[in-house]
Design a protein around this nucleic acid. Sequence first.
DNA 1: CTGAAAGCGCTAACAC
DNA 2: GTGTTAGCGCTTTCAG
Lengths: 349, 349
Amino acid sequence: MIKHKRPNIKQVALAAGVSTQTVSRVMNDRPDVSPETRERVQKIIGDLGYQPSALARSLIQQRSYTLGVVTAGLKYIGPARTLSGITNAAEEFGYSLLLKELPRFDVTHVLPILQEFISHHADGVIWAVPEVGDNREWLNQPPADLEVPMVFLTMQPRENIPVVSIDNYQGGRMAMSHLLDQGYRHIGHISGPLDWWEARQRKAAWQDALQENNIEVRESYWVEGNWSSASGAQAIEKLFQQYPEMDAVFAANDQMALSVIQAAYQRNKRIPQDIGVVGFDNISESPFFCPALTTVQSEQYTVGRMAVEEMIKIIEPGKKQEQESDHPTPIMLTPTLVVRQSSLKQQVH
Amino acid sequence: MIKHKRPNIKQVALAAGVSTQTVSRVMNDRPDVSPETRERVQKIIGDLGYQPSALARSLIQQRSYTLGVVTAGLKYIGPARTLSGITNAAEEFGYSLLLKELPRFDVTHVLPILQEFISHHADGVIWAVPEVGDNREWLNQPPADLEVPMVFLTMQPRENIPVVSIDNYQGGRMAMSHLLDQGYRHIGHISGPLDWWEARQRKAAWQDALQENNIEVRESYWVEGNWSSASGAQAIEKLFQQYPEMDAVFAANDQMALSVIQAAYQRNKRIPQDIGVVGFDNISESPFFCPALTTVQSEQYTVGRMAVEEMIKIIEPGKKQEQESDHPTPIMLTPTLVVRQSSLKQQVH
DNA sequence: CTGAAAGCGCTAACAC
DNA sequence: GTGTTAGCGCTTTCAG
């Protein structure tokens, strides 16, 4: 038996002695086919291994069941976790995914990216790149010819734009409340790069928490990092010099917090007795740092999932209330504080 | 001015007063268009924001410039790094990517996955899921109707199958040579889950290295983990009990090595003096462990890139030697040993 | 219940 | 140089 190339609907129809429409009806489970015909056609379909062309179907239906996803920094675990949530939810809803990874986070030239998705007839686009620098600027003068529904992740909520994000400010407040509860009063901060919206939110939480507790905030009490452990190492050096009374550090992510632990160890400062440490993200290694790291768990996977759910609500009308799409409410997920050894001054004897 | 939906080629042709064919020629930079016509059409194209449909084009050309990518475990940094290499190389070569993430590593039911890609007319499929359990079994009875070129990552090389992988065995040998050079003689091993090909390779390297140095290998000298730090913690507990003379550990990845460091610290064993530690993967945190971790750097990003390059060689004939596609040579990338504090017994005074 | 015709948006092949 | 015709593989519409 000779194997041919992928059969098309015509060949199936020919083999079954019916018209292509009938094959189409069988493929789409339409009721108006007689049982005998249906069975005969189905057998042929099985024998030939017929698989309809999603392309041809998308073309005629003006509906591709495909979503475009724009991401950046996949070599970092955060974006990868989010993407994983997106793939899982998309699978669940029966959508295929077109993936594009930007070479940098602060790409402002978005037209070619959207055009690629549009040219593939994507039903929607999930913009999974966090707000950095002016990479949301283009939303003020959106290219008029872009008729694709979009959902944005991790950005300052705006009118009429569907946004899904972790509540970074709230997460930061949780970290700070915990440190203050534990009796720390001289809390330094290692921020992320401040052109990142998330970094600004986390820093604002640090600052507000101190001020609300009538603790002075000075410029020398914080240093800007760039998310990397290496930058954290430099930052903590500076902080130790600038802020000798410092008895705790809120680091804007776990990688930088790891450097704080290392630096404290090298200077024979005990954690949590001499220096309390709290991170952000809850990377999978943080329970195994020495000591284990207290951190704010951000559900990036869930952010990805919810982005897809929001998208489905928009592009599949008639499922839920349609009035919601008129007033898209930003979704801000509340993080969780995961308390471990690095901040437990109270319980240490 | 009213904004219409995405214009098609017919509308452009009408507006420019030419045939669709001419518009097509302009879009594809064909030479046989007069300069004036070209300019006029191009203006209309710009004004209308015309973007040709990749779908229609794929349908007629029988070529989609789209690759399918199958991955798994994106929440782990390894697969994410590989995917990043794939996205970057695909971008470079002008290919779009359809992404599918498997819910588990050991999925054996591959037909629906391939069919989805085929139905989207993918020009090729990159199988970026590592060999685990019998998830390569289906290659023995490949579904005959799957005419898609494929490239596989991270598996035992086989005849006539294009494979790109890190050389895990060689990496393991490098780790072991280094430990032996440093004078360690009682080297335990925490392996990955042994249904993983990579875990078996790394373990074999451990075993062979010891035997070639006339060091006895006992069952009690190694424990199986599951890649996670938690499993590493359990494993190292066991090893300390089973193998009291142990003076070094080769852990099959950095996460498990981290647990070794933590456990040593808790037992007041000094690293590297009492216990040498070497990991595998070189995750971004490992330079900041206490002490910094010696590890085998595996270029997963490069694996992803090369997979795309191999695929292009296969589906774009006439670029290089075609005879290569007849005898696809497995590509095994040599890892690098990154020496840090955790294994430097010699240099410690 | 089933089939014929038309067309989604594009390009290959051929005419002029 | 440019236009016409045909068709990629499918579904919608309408006829029977």
